[in-house]
Design a protein around this nucleic acid. Structure first.
Lengths: 205, 205
DNA sequence: CGGTGTGAAGCCTTTCACAGCA
DNA sequence: TGCTGTGAAAGGCTTCACACCG
């Protein structure tokens, strides 16, 4: 369920305010969705609310953490150390929630051996070894479009089962591998579309 | 229509191969969607296909460009010049399609006056002036979560009607303003969810 | 009372299937 | 014959509305 991370964030916010209990309505507001939807989503995890009262914040945080698999660390490899790859490597938002960038890989021999923070950039051929030794479970593709499919193939071959693709290209993966994409140019084009048509309400996708 | 950018990209790929005509099936493959969907989407722009033959590539590129508003330049301002903001400022993928980063803004006085590439970082208070003078139409929010809402408010107040939010926070905007969000931590959490549940097929969202 | 849990309705998107035209 | 354009069916997701319980 793609909304769990939203609820998770909302609950953390509530926690910071030392509130012990919350309602679906309050959660809905913080997550920017409908209250009935919150209840339906949460009921999918089990009946953890108290009628007339609401949900116990601490318990729910625990429950969602476990559902999202945030109780353990997930070693991440970034392939393609250009502008974007470097920024992602330095981005603090990842480490905060158990995602640790433990490998940087680039095709360009001139970049191999260089460092970003504490991490050394390694060659594409080292991927299988890196995945094995560092327990990499998630691969981030931050290469140009042309390289994306072949990089994804090599990640899969190395044993990675989750891929986040930033390259502006359609990538195919075998069954059993999860793929998500973030396409910056597409996002801007969608905004441009709405701007041209003077409509309102681009969905926050 | 959120799939137009995909078709656009697919068509550009086809153009590079000097192919003059293409079918919905071929487009579907390149865009990673269903063929019937391609036809339905394109028919929404008008009946530009030839039965028994397919679509004329050059014409369709033209038509979609105009629909997406890519025939003109869109000046962009980036607010928040941390790791991510800097990377976005340097990212070539934007400029390629008419999105020009013409302003960098940061709240931190220590950063104001600094440079990223040719652009000088300016103060938040300069936003209205920047928007007016440089014709900014799109604002990119690359601040920490806590600042996101207030930055968005200031962008809107300055006259910006399209916002792309990278901060991990829910942001509200008035009617008439388009908002899209890109949440890196959420994407990873969704992958983590699928990984924990050993399922396949995370939708490429 | 107040707020959850949930069947049912409603809405929107995707897919099918095929008529119709070059 | 081949591929588009599109009505109709299917499916999925969201919202409503309310029974039920603390």
């Amino acid at each position: 369920m793609a909304r769990l991370p939203l609820y998770y964030r909302a609950l953390l916010e509530i926690t910071e305010r030392d509130v012990e209990t919350t309602s679906s309505e309050r959660l809905a507001e913080l997550a920017g969705v409908n209250a009935a939807q919150v209840r339906k989503d949460l009921s999918y995890l089990g009946s953890y609310g108290t009628r007339g009262v609401g949900y116990e914040v601490a318990f729910l945080v625990e429950r969602i953490s476990s559902e999202l698999g945030l109780t353990q660390d997930w070693p991440v490899a970034i392939v393609g150390v250009g502008n974007l790859g470097q920024a992602l490597a330095n981005y603090r938002g990842f480490g905060a929630r158990g995602f640790r960038v433990l490998a940087l890989v680039d095709e360009d021999p001139a970049k191999v051996g260089g460092k970003v923070g504490d991490l050394e950039i390694q060659a594409l051929d080292d991927l299988p070894e890196l995945v094995r030794e560092r327990g990499i479970t998630i691969g981030i593709v931050a290469t140009p479009a042309a390289a994306a499919q072949s990089v994804a193939d090599r990640l899969v071959a190395a044993g990675v089962r989750s891929i986040l693709n930033f390259a502006p290209a359609v990538v195919a993966v075998p069954d059993g591998v999860s793929l998500r994409k973030v396409d910056l140019a597409t996002e801007l084009q969608i905004l441009s579309f709405y701007q041209s048509h003077l409509r309102s309400k681009a969905k926050a996708g």
